[in-house]
């Protein structure tokens, strides 16, 4: 049995236990994906920790309630990503109806650790990151997730297309349109970047 088959078999066993109400088994299942999913959720919600945490909590609860539907056709990670992705589509109205970021809000991405932290990282750079994410959050969800997955998180194209349930060519078309829309937003809000 290969390592992947072993992992799938373990996941099915944990999923079966979770379906019987075993919370620890479910926590073990989501543990590996949680930091990556939270990073995705944060980028999708314009750097707003409260929104990212809300959406992820709801997605995890839905995954737990529907764990019987996980049949092991794909990996548990892929199955879970799809639930989070759907949850963001459901939440789009709620997210759009509230301000993306308030001045002085300390739950924003400006407090995020960088991948390359160090004394050279200035406050301006952190502010700029926050502002870019604000603009990303203004995109419609299907464009936002294409940009978040490919451009920001640099996920492979084939993996992203599978997660979104669309073809590679559809993903590329969507990404092109997303970049155009993002670039339009940048033009309209130049003051963000001065």
């Amino acid at each position: 049995m290969t390592g992947r088959e072993t992992r799938n078999s373990e996941q099915k066993e944990l999923a079966a236990r979770a379906a019987g109400g075993d919370i620890r088994a479910f926590e073990e299942l989501i543990m590996a994906e949680r930091p990556r999913l939270y990073s995705f959720a944060l980028a999708m919600s314009g750097g707003n920790h409260a929104d990212a945490a809300d959406v992820l909590q709801e997605a995890f609860i839905k995954a737990f309630v529907n764990i019987r539907r996980f049949r092991g056709d794909s990996s548990f990670g892929t199955w879970l990503w799809r639930i989070v992705h759907n949850e963001f589509l459901n939440y789009r109205v709620a997210l759009r109806s509230r301000p993306i970021r308030q001045e002085g809000d300390d739950e924003t991405v400006s407090r995020l650790p960088s991948d390359h932290p160090g004394p050279a990282e200035s406050l301006i750079a952190a502010e700029r990151r926050a502002k870019v994410l604000e603009l990303v959050a203004l995109l419609p969800p299907k464009y936002r997730e294409a940009i978040v997955m490919i451009d920001i998180r640099e996920q492979p194209y084939d993996e992203t297309a599978e997660l979104l349930g669309i073809s590679m060519s559809a993903l590329k078309t969507r990404l092109m349109r997303a970049r155009e829309k993002f670039s339009e937003l940048v033009r309209k809000r130049k003051e963000h970047f001065i």
């Binding site: 944060l42 750097g47 909590q57 990151r129 092109m176 670039s183």
Partner: peptide, 26 residues
């Protein structure tokens, strides 16, 4: 130009690949 603008702004570690969930989340 639109494509280059977007890529130029979006690349470069905007959000770390993995982030711990906030305190009390778990």
């Amino acid at each position: 130009a639109a494509s280059d603008t977007a890529i130029g702004i979006l690349k470069g570690g905007l959000v770390p690949q993995e982030i711990d969930t906030p305190p009390l989340f778990n």
